[in-house]
């Protein structure tokens, strides 16, 4: 019940912000601000939709939605309690793991992203986690499957785009 109250407050806050943004847009003389405000409106609306969907689901089933496929395992003892939904977006939480771990190519091959395993790939000797990377849906990326060394493939498709690697969580080194 406390969760529902929190979500209600969140929705009220978003609606207030949206009202304010609409007012700002209507009186705006500096058009360079417009895209940002529109983007914020869009985000607010998406979040409101998300929260209302969650509420509708709660009302319909009385069972909470479990974030069962997130990268953090849900302790089994918790299953009967109603989990607190994360209110802040967390798309790129760093994986709380030592990044000093070493992998052989054989060990790497077991991290295929299937059957509950994380999805890892290696580029230039560094092992990266792509489990929740948006370009790796179902642990596949343009015909490549997770669990392999893709140094050459990266060089041929993403030459000069080191920034891609910089955004990926590092899990260790390939030896």
């Amino acid at each position: 019940m406390q969760n529902i109250e929190m979500i209600r407050m969140q929705i009220n806050y978003l609606v207030t912000q949206a009202h304010h943004d609409i007012y700002t847009l209507a009186t705006l003389s500096d058009t360079s601000m417009k895209p940002q405000i529109l983007q914020r409106l869009w985000d607010a609306l998406s979040t409101i939709q998300f929260l209302s969907e969650w509420l509708a689901n709660q009302a319909k089933t009385s069972y909470p939605i479990l974030p069962s496929q997130s990268s953090y395992p849900v302790p089994s003892g918790n299953l009967n309690q109603s989990p607190i939904p994360p209110i802040t977006p967390s798309p790129t939480l760093p994986i709380a793991q030592s990044n000093q771990r070493t992998f052989t190519i054989g060990e790497l091959a077991t991290f295929t992203g299937k059957n509950g395993r994380p999805a890892y790939i290696a580029v230039n000797g560094i092992v990266y986690d792509v489990t929740n990377n948006r370009a790796w849906a179902a642990a596949t990326h343009f015909g490549l499957i997770a669990g392999k060394d893709y140094t050459q493939e990266f060089a041929s498709c993403h030459a000069g785009q080191q920034s891609i690697l910089a955004t990926l969580p590092v899990v260790g080194r390939l030896v």
Binding site: T47, F50, Q69, P89, S90, P91
Partner: peptide, 14 residues
């Protein structure tokens, strides 16, 4: 995508 907030919160269809 209208389902983007689910992605951002790690809530995935099975």
């Amino acid at each position: 995508c209208p389902r983007r907030p689910f992605f951002d919160r790690g809530i995935f269809a099975e």
